[in-house]
């Protein structure tokens, strides 16, 4: 049963439709990546799912609870896109307060556990007004986790943080998934989405343009993969000519003794390797360079 299910969910501001009739399903235990250019409507969509913004029309079902988000807020953790805190409170005070607001007891051990998980241990008593942007982002993640939710919405969890912290956050997200949590995240970092998300949706001008796993998206857009075949360094000119004739239906390129072939599907690789072997050409290594999410994204 899906953890998130929307049906024709839309949002308009005045006459401007920012999110148009989005129907989407996210299963339990997924890390669902939500991509799109600035202004595509990602944040508005997340805000509708989390109760920050009210939908203009459509239906949504979170954790099998029909439309009444209030009933399941204690089971959902949210990192909003723009996080500001109460400057006069410390990180610990924030977590204590938010835990109580969620209706859960604010145990010191839990607060410390969450602060440690996000890498803020040692800063728990510092006033948030003195925090850097990255530290505030970490606190934002901590407050989303403090009540031990089943479903997490993370809007740009690594934007504005240093590379080391970003890796730390990505590991944390994977850890949360291992513990059975479902994560719905938006990101501008395509490498990150490609690396950690189990499924991806690409949003364009208020619509979902495509959804699927990386493999499905590559197949859908028939993106070519580049196969790098390492041949003997003593390969002769005539042999190169033979190979060119043999693989006449492919686009090929030479880089010294490295043969570069563009293929549409992985299934074509054994055929190429077999054809080369049949000609008596020694193959030392085969490496497949798959197109990145960035390449797919840029083609949208």
């Amino acid at each position: 049963m899906p953890v998130i299910e929307t049906e024709k969910l839309s949002k308009s501001f005045s006459r401007n439709e920012v999110v148009s009739s989005i129907s989407l399903k996210v299963e339990k235990g997924e890390i669902f990546g939500f991509l799109g250019r600035n202004g595509a409507g990602k944040t508005t969509f997340v805000n509708m799912l989390t109760g920050i913004t009210l939908p203009t029309s459509g239906r949504m079902l979170l954790l099998n609870n029909n439309n009444d988000i209030d009933q399941i807020k204690h089971r959902v953790g949210v990192l909003p896109d723009y996080s500001t805190f109460y400057d006069h409170l410390s990180a610990k005070d924030h977590l204590k307060y938010f835990c109580k607001v969620s209706g859960k007891p604010a145990a010191t051990s839990k607060i410390e556990e969450v602060l440690r998980a996000v890498g803020l241990i040692g800063h728990e008593k510092k006033k948030v007004g003195k925090f850097s942007f990255g530290m505030k982002k970490k606190l934002g993640i901590a407050q989303a986790l403090i009540h031990d939710p089943e479903l997490l919405f993370l809007d740009e969890p690594t934007s504005g943080v240093d590379a080391e912290s970003a890796i730390h956050i990505q590991r944390l997200i994977l850890e949360l998934q291992k513990n059975g949590k479902t994560i719905f995240m938006t990101s501008h970092n395509l490498d990150e989405v490609e690396r950690i998300c189990t499924r991806i949706a690409i949003m364009k001008e208020g619509h979902i343009h495509s959804t699927g796993t990386m493999k499905e998206l590559k197949k859908k857009y028939q993106t070519r993969s580049r196969v790098q075949i390492k041949l003997s360094s003593h390969i002769k000119k005539e042999q190169k000519e033979n190979i060119k004739n043999l693989l006449f239906s492919y686009s090929i390129e030479w880089k010294d003794s490295m043969l570069l072939v563009d293929v549409m599907a992985e299934e074509e690789i054994p055929t190429i390797v077999h054809a080369l072997s049949k000609e008596g050409i020694d193959i030392f290594a085969v490496h497949v360079h798959e197109p990145s999410l960035q390449e797919i994204f840029l083609r949208q």
Partner: peptide, 14 residues
């Protein structure tokens, strides 16, 4: 204005 309301509104009812 400060958007701290977003933390509250995602945790409990309005």
């Amino acid at each position: 204005e400060s958007k701290t309301i977003r933390f509250l509104v995602t945790k409990t009812s309005r």
